[in-house]
Design a protein around this nucleic acid. Sequence first.
DNA 1: TGACAAAGTAGCGAAATGCTACTAAAATAC
DNA 2: GTATTTTAGTAGCATTTCGCTACTTTGTCA
Lengths: 272, 272
Amino acid sequence: MEKRNANGLTEKEFLSQYNPGDYKRPSVTVDILVLGMNEKLDGLKVLLIRRKDHPFMDCWALAGGFVEYDESTYRAAVRELYEETGLSDIYLEQLYTMSQPDRDPRMRVIDVAYIALIPIVEAHAGSDASEAAWFDVSMTDEEMILKNETLGVFMKYSLEKKVFHNGILQIENYVPRLQSKEALAFDHAEIVMEGLLRIRNKVEYTDIAFNLMPQEFTLPDLQKVYEILLGKTLYKTNFRDKIQDKVVALDKKGVSVTGGKKSLLYRYKNRY
Amino acid sequence: MEKRNANGLTEKEFLSQYNPGDYKRPSVTVDILVLGMNEKLDGLKVLLIRRKDHPFMDCWALAGGFVEYDESTYRAAVRELYEETGLSDIYLEQLYTMSQPDRDPRMRVIDVAYIALIPIVEAHAGSDASEAAWFDVSMTDEEMILKNETLGVFMKYSLEKKVFHNGILQIENYVPRLQSKEALAFDHAEIVMEGLLRIRNKVEYTDIAFNLMPQEFTLPDLQKVYEILLGKTLYKTNFRDKIQDKVVALDKKGVSVTGGKKSLLYRYKNRY
DNA sequence: TGACAAAGTAGCGAAATGCTACTAAAATAC
DNA sequence: GTATTTTAGTAGCATTTCGCTACTTTGTCA
């Protein structure tokens, strides 16, 4: 009583005869936007890899690579992240799939972008590899800047507001437009921009920010991280009220950096 | 003064010699989750297409198809939506990329899922094609149900809460598990679930809900749509206060359906 | 020990939200 | 016609959240 299709085939027969065809298929890659707080907790950093070959030779790019035929894009992202930066067991979430046909001059490539967050304490992992480096990244409504003062690299994009029509609504979108001599490879500036918008948005309704904190942290430090991600200052009292059911106090205190009372250490409740 | 790579090639030389290789590439498809409100404005509907061949023959599936070699996935989604349902010029946004290697028994397929919203007034477009039909869809914390009483089709998934570790955080995710005899094709139940979560979330901080409304609408109707998307009742006064700067009143009134005062018609401010 | 710096708490006005109750206008019943 | 029912729309107040200032506490440094 098996179902037969219009050609009279059962599913088993259909699958055994199925020919995928030899038309041209896109290649599939993953890229990972790795973000962490800087040492002073007053800004975000992004991990970039220097390209050693054409195209975009010598340009800085996100970590990434090709997806194997039998692995999910998530698995590929985990693998590439480890291979290129040594990082593992960090927060990783799918961000956006880039598919402009001309995004890679070599061939048609579909790129699934991921976003990774890394705790402050590990913020220097992977940075000793000569081809990887951490860049300060900041974004306002008008521009996005990536820089590494040690390397003397400065990249600047203005964010052009574009109003387009998607269905019946006017949608405002931002498109990064290069303003500096140096540039990110491919469409990676768009990915960085989208990633920063995503994380800024998710801070408001998830606990994603804790992925940027070490195991034990102080509330003033946590507040700084929230302030950077949200792009505005918060009030101590209100912040502590809102956060208190997400954290548990430890009975130790942190260190005083520039003199002043030592703050209590906390850890995230839903850490595993 | 052109840059040369390790093999002494300029970019132009490199690209002209570049061989993409003949290793196996995944196929790339798009699927579109088309959502609209039902007539009574007390629930969402999803547009499904009946599959006419293996695999998942006779199962209901999202609209979708293969991405051409030289089109973006967005373009492919627009094209497939029009080809399969006749719908065009509606809200369309990228949702998630599905990439489990075994998601299609025929071959490796990477699927970029999109979500489309359609105004009430057009809610029956495409439904006359015999292989397409609108299904009532509802989702609670525990289950997701899709049904079409005219066709006598009933699909039910329990939403199993899964706690997994992504980096340092415990993340709670829901996975749909089939409870009924009939089922959606492929991993489309996951896409529907993700889409409903996405839209529920976006209602809170965007004007996405207006894509589900006709040009002219009443505030009580708009409130019903918000209530369905958010899954909770709202207070008239507060709702009107919050919405009033997004809409402009027209000087006509709508029709009274079951007796009672006629309500004023409005339209969305940022409509084009 | 005193000056300074940061941690942490108290408290209050303003704004947003939860909630009840009313009046106004339309359809329906008689 | 008038009464009844139904929905639209407004008033108003209690509760909670948020914006903001000021204070006390505890540490470092000179």
